[in-house]
Each structure stands twice: as structure tokens, then as C-alpha cells.
Amino acid sequence: MTNRHKLNYLASFLLFASLGFSRQVLAHGANIVYQQTPAIEVKATYDDGKPMSNAQVVIYAPDNPAIPWLKGKTNEEGKFSFIPQSNISGNWDIKIRQSGHGDIISIPWQTENVASTVESRDNMPNSSNWLASANNNYNPIQKVVMAATGVWGFIGTALFFSRQKSS
């Protein structure tokens, strides 16, 4: 076998080898892409402010409120994040529950507003600004005033029924 034949064999071998293992070689590479997409983050706490950590989360999509769309658990801070399906507009119901306690929140979601949501989020002063609460999130002063008015109503009732009847 001449040197020319040897070179032809070698060239043929390298050609077939490169074709045969080309996919495997390419698979060693990695390609990472990203897109910015709006997500919903919920935070669950007890009345005293303690986070509901490891509570069960059940999410219902607007198009099928009977069957859960996603299930999960809150983290140690009582938070849970998910990305709603972009083509489903309506109210996403989120149930968070632990040992018989919890609540359900309904979050309105419009697909055409996704872009504006991203923009408005950029303008938010910090990420701890929560948009809504399942139960009206009164501050302590408001709660004290509300409790005081309720108590005053009961005291008024007591005073009314304990009044001295005029003869």
C-alpha cells in the first residue's frame, strides 16, 4: 500500500468518524437563552405575622376552576411563585392551607396586560409591595379602631338594656 492509499484511508476514516459522532460532539455544548416573563408571587402569613411555611398551595386556572392547575408548597418565608399560562386570562384562584387554616385569594390576570405589568413592576420601589390581600390587610391602628368601635357597640347594648326604667 502506497503512501497515497494510506492517506486516502485516513481521510475516509476521519470523515466517517466526524459524521458519525457529530451529534454527540455537539451535545457537549450548551446554549442558554432567557426571556423576561411576569410571575406571580404569593405570601401567606398567620394573623400574628408568622409565615405559613411548608403550607400546601393549590392553584386553579381561570378556564377550569374545578381541577388544580398546579400544586406545591410554600417556602420557609411562606412564599410561593408561579408563572401563569400566558394565554389564559381571568381570575387565578390560589388556595393556601395548613392544619385547617388558610385562605383563598383570587388574582386577576389579563394576557394583554402582561407587558405593562412588567413595566409597572420595574417602577415599583421594592419587591415587598404586595398588590392585594385575600383578607383586607389592615394595619394595627386600623384594627384597634375597628375593634374599639365593635366593643363600644357591645357596651352600648349593655348600657341600653341596663338602663333604669322611668316610672
Binding site: A147, F154, I155, A158
Partner: peptide, 19 residues
């Protein structure tokens, strides 16, 4: 007994807010 019941209702109402 209504005045007494009313005052205890107030206590019950507020108790749930005191942790």
C-alpha cells in the same frame, strides 16, 4: 342577663385579636 351577655360578647370578639 343581656348586659352581661353583651359585655362577654365584646370580650369574645376582641380575644381573637390578641395573640
Amino acid at each position: 342577663k343581656i348586659p352581661r351577655a353583651s359585655l362577654f360578647t365584646a370580650a369574645f370578639f376582641v380575644a381573637s385579636l390578641i395573640h
